[in-house]
Simulated scan of single mutants.
Amino acid sequence: MTEETVLTRDELAYINRLVNRAGPDTAASRTGFRIDGGPQPNELLVRLASQTELSLQAKFPDFTMSFPLQLKEDEFHNLDLQLAPPLIYEHGSVTRAWRLHLEEPLALLTSDGSESALSVQELSSHGLLVNAGKHRKPPKHFHLCLALPDDAPLEIEASRVREMKGGLAAYEVEFAKEQDAERIRAFLYQQHQRLHPELQPELPVDLV
C-alpha cells in the first residue's frame, strides 16, 4: 500500500470543510466545486456522470476514504461537482468497510419511539452488529429505527448475514432514503476523525 495520500492534507482539509459545512440533513444542501474546463471536458464529465458513479479517493496506509461525487448542470451549462460524506474502508488481509465500535450501544426503536429488545454494538456504512440478548435468537429480518446521538431516528431494513454466540448477529442494512445513508456516513466520518486525529492534524475541532 502507498504511504502517501492521493490528496494533500490541505486539500483533504478543504474537502472536509465542504462536507461538514452543509451538515448531514439533506443531499440537496451539499456544496462542492465549480467546474470550468471548457465545452469538451465538461461534456466528457457529464457523459461519465450519466454512465457511472464518480468518486474522489484519499488513500492512507490503513484506510481509504471514497467521497461520492454528483455532477449538477444549471441552465447555463455551468457544472458543479458536489461532495457527499465518504465511505471509509480499512485495509488488511481483506479490504472492508470500517466499523465503529460503539462505547454505548444504541437501542433500535419501534415506530412509536419505544426501545426494542435489539441494540447496535458496531456500525458501518451498510452493516450492523446487533445484540439480541443471551436468551433470544436474533431475527432473520427487522424493520426498525436507529437514533444516532443528537439526531432524529432513521428507518432501516436489516437482513441477518451471520449469527454469533451470545445473542450477537451481523446484519446487512438498506435505507429508505439516500439521505439516511448519507447521515450514517457523516456520523461515521466524524467519529473516524475523532478516533484518528493524526490523519488530519490541522483541522479545528469545530469542523467535526
Results as ranks from 00 to 15, higher is better:
residue 203 L to A: 10
residue 98 W to Y: 14
residue 28 A to Q: 03
residue 138 P to R: 13
residue 185 R to P: 14
residue 147 A to P: 00
residue 119 S to L: 07
residue 19 V to G: 13
residue 131 N to H: 13
residue 122 E to D: 15
residue 32 G to F: 00
residue 14 Y to E: 07
residue 84 A to C: 01
residue 129 L to I: 02
residue 191 Q to H: 03
residue 62 D to H: 13
residue 18 L to I: 11
residue 173 V to Q: 02
residue 102 L to W: 08
residue 55 S to F: 15
residue 6 V to H: 07
residue 15 I to H: 05
residue 184 I to C: 02
residue 4 E to Q: 06
residue 205 V to Y: 15
residue 99 R to Y: 09
residue 22 A to P: 01
residue 104 E to N: 09
residue 102 L to P: 08
residue 91 H to S: 14
residue 102 L to H: 06
residue 132 A to L: 06
residue 188 L to Q: 08
residue 184 I to F: 02
residue 155 E to M: 14
residue 16 N to A: 01
residue 190 Q to V: 15
residue 171 Y to M: 04
residue 5 T to N: 15
residue 25 D to K: 15
residue 113 G to H: 05
residue 163 E to F: 07
residue 93 S to L: 09
residue 84 A to V: 00
residue 144 L to N: 10
residue 199 L to Y: 01
residue 41 P to S: 13
residue 65 M to W: 05
residue 172 E to I: 05
residue 13 A to W: 04
residue 175 F to W: 00
residue 130 V to N: 02
residue 145 C to H: 06
residue 194 R to L: 12
residue 161 V to Q: 08
residue 174 E to K: 01
residue 5 T to A: 14
residue 152 A to E: 14
residue 67 F to L: 05
residue 150 D to Y: 03
residue 60 F to K: 04
residue 90 E to D: 07
residue 146 L to V: 00
residue 174 E to D: 03
residue 38 G to I: 09
residue 36 D to I: 09
residue 177 K to E: 11
residue 196 H to Q: 12
residue 80 D to K: 08
residue 162 R to V: 09
residue 105 P to L: 07
residue 38 G to P: 07
residue 5 T to G: 15
residue 60 F to G: 04
residue 142 F to M: 03
residue 183 R to L: 01
residue 23 G to I: 10
residue 129 L to N: 02
residue 121 Q to I: 04
residue 32 G to I: 03
residue 151 D to N: 08
residue 23 G to L: 10
residue 6 V to N: 08
residue 122 E to S: 15
residue 171 Y to I: 05
residue 41 P to F: 11
residue 185 R to W: 14
residue 73 E to L: 07
residue 196 H to R: 15
residue 40 Q to H: 02
residue 183 R to M: 03
residue 156 I to Q: 01
residue 74 D to P: 14
residue 6 V to W: 06
residue 137 K to R: 07
residue 66 S to H: 02
residue 98 W to I: 05
residue 140 K to E: 14
residue 83 L to S: 15
residue 200 Q to R: 09
residue 18 L to W: 09
residue 54 L to S: 00
residue 155 E to Y: 11
residue 37 G to A: 05
residue 84 A to D: 05
residue 39 P to Y: 10
residue 79 L to G: 00
residue 49 A to T: 12
residue 7 L to A: 15
residue 75 E to P: 04
residue 112 D to W: 09
residue 22 A to L: 04
residue 146 L to C: 00
residue 55 S to A: 12
residue 78 N to M: 10
residue 93 S to G: 07
residue 131 N to T: 06
residue 148 L to T: 03
residue 164 M to Q: 15
residue 90 E to I: 04
residue 184 I to Q: 01
residue 177 K to F: 12
residue 160 R to P: 00
residue 127 G to L: 00
residue 72 K to G: 11
residue 67 F to Q: 04
residue 123 L to K: 01
residue 196 H to E: 05
residue 89 Y to H: 08
residue 128 L to R: 01
residue 182 E to P: 03
residue 50 S to K: 01
residue 112 D to Q: 14
residue 64 T to R: 02
residue 9 R to E: 03
residue 52 T to M: 11
residue 95 T to L: 10
residue 168 L to N: 03
residue 183 R to H: 05
residue 136 R to N: 11
residue 162 R to M: 08
residue 177 K to L: 10
residue 82 Q to G: 10
residue 159 S to I: 09
residue 107 A to T: 09
residue 128 L to E: 00
residue 74 D to T: 13
residue 143 H to N: 14
residue 49 A to F: 10
residue 108 L to K: 00
residue 157 E to C: 12
residue 179 Q to L: 02
